[in-house]
Design a protein around this nucleic acid. Structure first.
Length: 829
RNA sequence: GGGCGAUUAGCUCAGCUGGUCAGAGCGCUGGUCUCACAUACCAGAGGUCACUGGUUCAAGUCCAGUAUCGCCCACCA
């Protein structure tokens, strides 16, 4: 179900910026016309992200697009507001909130994240009102002293006991303020005395309430000083700070300055320093909503992946504070509250025509709109028709899995859980998967202001330097433009590169991984299709008798089963990166590197017809499973290739899409330990020969003989049968089983067998000696550590029987192998 | 101040419940245009698994501490 939120503040800012470019403000247009402009903007740009999703192949139900400002969702918002109000969970109050002086609106705590910045801590002396003496307080915001209405000390602080109840004179403004005793003052911090500014500090606000202190507002909604600030009136808050400090300095009241790093809340939309401000706003009482939401996660009804995010969730939930939901902007859901001219308040689902209390028809709706998240938190059910009891709700609620970023646990995840429990009486989803955050190559979070976030469409379609514009200048690795990697390449690369629980430093060159994978898949399929003739009738593998399958067929089917199992397990456990790893290994290192090479042997014209038919059937069957298995990661290319397969390979005839085929299941019957063991041996032999050829510099075209010593009968048979494969993959012309060691031969040991590649004349004896010595050295080292272990009485006594036995076996294997290698080495003399 | 995570080859990352001597991709070196793929194939070099202790017969793998980096939370004296 694709869709998006209306992003109230961000969108309004965007449109206001456009107006500003024309020298206009929203007030010039008025509310109605301004909103028209926003809708226009939304129509123009709001679809971009959905288009990106579409191009990435997200398999949404594109006919069900939803938007938080849709009529239906707006009905849900009003319903929720009224219900919570009636339940006493929504209230209106004059309190301290986070205020962004640039956006000119209240923000929630979550929208005002603290950023640690270097600052200073100033100590200021307040002279006592009666007689001599002073009391020193410290602050990082000297300009707020203009609004001080008390100085507090801890009740049990002996140093100040004699001052409690007396008065200090607030410098610069000359106000007489009481010295009070309150536990808020921490004797350990600073001088132990703290200035109290109820209108501009969250703690002080509480202290003010406890002691009925006046709330003196000295900073207005623009961040400028008010008339209460006396001579500082009209100054910007930062300017005022400098002036206050200068004046205090001149009056000799500054008692010290220290450097201090302090977390300062910033507007998450415009990054302006947020001001704690006194104002009348709407709030949601959160505690009652949080309790059940904590429970469902504690009880495992909702599971987080990776689970450590649960701690973050619990911490927030357990310390949750009331949620300020009103915003002083225009773009959003208007608060469903009306006031009549006699100040009666009407909270209503529908626009009232008259005041139910006094009958007045002169009603004015609350000017404010709601926080965007007040509609987003309803998404799991508001999009399905709630508050009506629709069929969609019945079918699709609750959902299965929420995939989202850990940065919106509080904004969205936590609140959706609360809302669903409150209004639906059920959880919204069972699993929450937190994906990685994509960072730029320097590790910085991608953001619009940094301009370091590439458009996925550039990566998919490619982009020239001109098309990248500013972006290419700011980001060095894009200085020459971006090649077209394709959507599949982008998708699988992102999944592959994403560690569970970690972030990813993204650079477009990383997408080469996916590009190569897609290319490999494409070419493998080409090879397969090239071998299908019109008259071929591939058989479903289930219909081929086991005896007719070759060893390599049984091997690849067995490996396929393991791969399917590995991918499925990884997906079930939300280890998506592991899933792509397993897929990649199977496709590239088993199917392409080995099986297709083996299969070529049976696919060419000279092959025996039945053998060829069986091989082709297996080749196709495995390819078909691969395409389905890979489809979630590379949907476009797999769909394309799957369509190209002969119809007989597909499970359902005449169906248009790979999507409707079920995801591959591990088929237990295909497991074949014997085939796996046998092919592993063949691979080892081929690798050994290749290693010799590579290291001893056998000319690539030269064919070689292979002489095998100490081979058991079954291995002799296996290797004889495998000669065609060895010929193809290691240019082995013949394989002979002899007891005599050939002269001037390169050698290797596989299992208990000695392999010799006679290279009379060609061989560089020194190269070969070096090879063997290196191997002998390695083995000797390993044997040594084994011996130490096996000679350790503690090990024998304490380690499990099983482990000891395994180590013994290993020792005898190593010794045998070492003996063989030494014989090989001495035979060169 | 509290919490969480990371630290493994030049780079990006795997290594689950401790018992093959550490793996992949990229990059690098050497060799191949072998009829699916040079976006490929073959071979190779490269790591005191951040540091210090501890537990254990045995530790990248468990515990404690240190360092560096990152994230989140916290009332900005």
């Amino acid at each position: 179900l694709p869709g998006r939120a209306h992003a109230a503040i961000a969108t309004q800012n965007k449109v206001e910026k456009m107006l500003a470019a024309q020298g206009k403000t929203r007030n010039d247009l008025g509310r109605e016309r301004f909103l028209e402009r926003v809708w226009e903007w939304k129509r123009k740009y709001g679809g971009i992200i959905l288009e990106q999703l579409r191009r990435l192949g997200a398999s949404c139900d594109w006919e069900r697009e939803r938007f938080t400002m849709d009529e239906g969702l707006s009905v849900a918002v009003r319903e929720v507001f009224v219900r919570l109000y009636e339940k006493g969970l929504i209230y209106r109050d004059r309190a301290l909130i986070n205020w962004c002086p640039r956006c000119k609106t209240a923000l929630s705590d979550e929208e005002s994240p603290g950023k640690e910045l270097p600052g200073k801590l100033w100590s200021i002396a307040y002279p006592l009102a009666d007689g001599d003496g002073e009391i020193v307080v410290a602050t990082t915001r000297p300009e707020t002293m203009l609004g001080d209405t008390a100085v507090a000390v801890h009740p049990s602080d002996e140093r100040y006991r004699h001052l409690v109840g007396r008065y200090a004179i607030l410098p610069l403004v000359g106000r007489r303020i009481p010295i009070i005793a309150d536990v808020h003052a921490d004797p350990e911090k600073g001088s132990g005395a703290v200035k109290i500014t109820p209108a501009h500090d969250f703690d002080d606000f509480q202290v003010g309430l406890r002691h009925q202190l006046p709330q003196v507002v000295v900073i207005d909604e623009d961040g400028k000083m008010t008339a209460e600030a006396g001579p500082y009136q009209g100054l910007d808050r930062m300017e005022a700070r400098a002036r206050v400090l200068r004046d205090l300095e001149q009056q000799g009241l500054l008692r010290g300055v220290e450097d201090q790093v302090t977390p300062i809340p910033h507007c998450y939309r415009c990054d302006t320093v947020v001001e704690p401000a006194l104002s009348t706003q709407w709030f949601v009482r959160m505690k009652p909503l949080a309790e059940p939401a904590i429970r469902v996660v504690k009880e495992g009804k909702i599971r987080f992946h990776p689970p450590q995010h649960q701690e973050t969730y619990f911490h927030w939930m357990e310390n949750v504070r009331d949620w300020c939901i009103s915003r002083q902007i225009w773009w959003g859901h208007r608060i469903p509250v009306w006031y009549c001219d006699r100040q009666h308040m009407v909270v209503s689902r529908v626009t009232p025509s008259s005041c139910p209390e006094c009958g007045s028809t002169s009603l004015r709706q609350d000017e404010d709109v709601l926080d965007t998240w007040f509609s987003s938190w309803l998404w799991p059910f508001s999009t399905l028709g709630w508050p009506e009891r629709t069929r969609d709700l019945e079918v699709f609620f609750p959902g299965d899995t929420l995939v989202t970023g850990p940065d919106i646990i509080f904004f969205w995840v936590a609140r959706m859980i609360m809302a669903s429990l409150e209004f639906m009486g059920d959880i919204p989803f069972r699993d929450v998967y937190f994906h990685s955050i994509v960072r730029d190559p320097e590790g910085r979070k991608m953001s619009k202001s940094l301009g370091n976030s590439p458009d996925p469409l550039w990566l998919i379609d490619g982009a020239t330097v001109e098309e990248l514009g500013e972006f290419a200048k700011k980001n060095p690795s894009y200085a020459k433009g971006v090649p077209a990697y394709g959507a599949d390449a982008l998708r699988i690369s992102m999944v592959y590169l994403t560690p569970v629980g970690g972030d990813i430093r993204f650079d477009h060159t990383l997408v080469e991984f996916g590009q190569r994978f897609a290319n490999k898949l494409w070419n493998a399929a080409r090879l397969v299709l090239l071998n299908v003739r019109a008259e071929d009738e591939p058989l479903p593998v289930e219909e081929i008798r086991a005896e007719e399958l070759s060893l390599v067929d049984r091997w690849i089917l067995s490996r396929l089963r393991a791969a399917v199992e590995a991918v499925r397990t990884a997906l079930q456990e939300f280890r998506f990166s592991d899933a792509t790893r397993a897929l990649y290994k199977f496709v590239w290192n088993e199917y392409c590197d080995w099986y297709l090479e083996f299969a070529k042997e049976h696919l060419d014209a000279s092959a025996e017809p039945r053998r060829r038919q069986v091989t082709l059937s297996v080749v196709l069957a495995v390819m078909e499973r691969i395409l389905r298995l890979a489809h979630p990661f590379v949907p476009f290319i797999t769909e394309e290739l799957w369509q190209a397969l002969p119809a007989g390979c597909r499970r359902v005839q005449g169906v248009a899409s790979i999507m409707v085929q079920s995801y591959p299941q591990p088929e237990q019957t295909l497991s074949d330990a014997h085939a796996e063991e046998a092919i592993a041996l063949v691979q080892e032999v081929i690798n050994a020969v290749r290693n010799i050829r590579g290291e001893v510099r056998v000319p690539p075209q030269a064919r070689v003989s292979l002489i095998v010593q100490w081979a058991e009968a079954r291995h002799q048979e296996l290797l004889r049968e495998s000669l065609p494969y060895m010929a193809r993959l290691a240019k082995v012309a013949e394989v002979k089983f002899e007891t005599a060691r050939p002269r001037a031969a390169a050698s290797a040991v596989v299992g208990r067998m000695s392999l010799f590649v006679p290279l009379e004349g060609v061989i560089d004896l020194e190269l070969e000696r070096g090879r063997l010595r290196k191997e002998i050295e390695r083995l000797t080292g390993q044997l040594e550590t084994l011996n130490v272990r096996l000679n350790n009485r503690d090990f024998l006594a304490r380690a499990s029987q099983e482990v000891v036995e395994r180590e013994r076996q290993k020792k005898s294997d190593f010794e045998a192998r070492l003996g063989r290698l030494q014989m090989c080495l001495s035979s060169l003399d």
